[in-house]
């Protein structure tokens, strides 16, 4: 006889189901796709006039969309991809970003991240970015971002940076989550660092501030009127735009 205590736990079933959904998504779409015309989005919303009108608006300002896999990492992956791409083209940005990155390992360890793993993610991120800026091509960038292991390594480092910024500036960020989490560290442990956890406004603001690489978010949802545009941080002049549809981010091009 055994204690009647051990049903195949509910959690395990949920996890197995989530894994299957992730696999289905993975089989359908690359981590980072080739750009396609924004018009293509219309076919997803033939029954939805609110959305259709907004996409019509969108096509006036943007010509292409680069889809990013909806696996919970889409914001971080899209952001890292646009950062790599922009650093290659913009020497001033590149210098600024490398200067910042050089300080981040010691900074994160000081904030309490485990040095052994953080160093690994840091070194991989810096080295990959350096390689891309020195001798990368469009094709090698696409290869890097579509290689599961490598792409996810890069995502983990931007999650660490996000987490560091939120904890460093917790006075500024904590009021937004007060009552839900006991401190910023708990928020980061639950909402930033777990693999595949989606990013929200707080994470986006923290990451853009950390790397001083701003972005424009273009919101498309069911509400009335044209798409809403939001520049993060306030008052910056970003060169990159991400499309936000509820629960998902893709990259937009003029």
């Amino acid at each position: 006889m055994t204690a009647e205590a051990d049903p195949m736990s509910h959690d395990d079933n949920v996890i197995a189901q989530m894994d299957q959904i992730s696999k289905d998504i993975a089989n359908k779409s690359p981590l980072v796709s080739e750009p396609e015309p924004v018009e293509n989005l219309k076919s997803e919303y033939t029954q939805n006039h609110g959305f259709l009108a907004k996409i019509e608006h969108l096509t006036k300002s943007y010509s292409k969309i680069r889809r990013v896999r909806g696996d919970g990492n889409c914001f971080y992956r899209a952001y890292a991809y646009t950062l790599f791409d922009a650093c290659k083209r913009d020497a001033a940005l590149r210098d600024r970003v490398f200067k910042k990155l050089d300080t981040t390992l010691a900074w994160l360890v000081q904030l309490g991240m485990p040095s052994f793993t953080t160093e690994d993610f840091h070194d991989t991120f810096v080295e990959t970015l350096k390689n891309h800026c020195d001798s990368g091509t469009y094709d090698s960038l696409m290869e890097t971002f579509n290689n599961d292991g490598m792409s996810n390594y890069l995502v983990v480092y931007v999650r660490l940076l996000t987490s560091g910024q939120l904890q460093q500036d917790s006075d500024e960020y904590l009021p937004f989550v007060e009552g839900l989490y006991k401190d910023m560290k708990e928020f980061c442990d639950k909402e930033v660092m777990p693999v595949d956890r989606e990013a929200d406004h707080l994470q986006i603001k923290a990451l853009t501030e950390c790397l001083s690489f701003p972005l424009k978010l273009v919101y498309v949802d069911r509400s009335e009127g044209g798409p809403t545009e939001l520049v993060i941080p306030d008052g910056s002049s970003p060169d990159v735009s991400l499309l936000y549809r509820p629960g998902h981010y893709d990259i937009l091009y003029d």
Binding site: T2, A3, A5, D6, S9, D11, I15, M113, P114, F116, T117, T118, F121, N152, V156, R159, L160, D189, K190, M193, P194, V195
Partner: peptide, 21 residues
């Protein structure tokens, strides 16, 4: 679990982070 030794702990499930050791 007193039977199988299986563990219920958030970081071994949905709170796992790649930077953990």
């Amino acid at each position: 679990s007193s039977v199988t030794g299986a563990i219920c702990l958030d970081i071994l499930k949905d709170q796992w982070a790649a930077a953990m050791t």
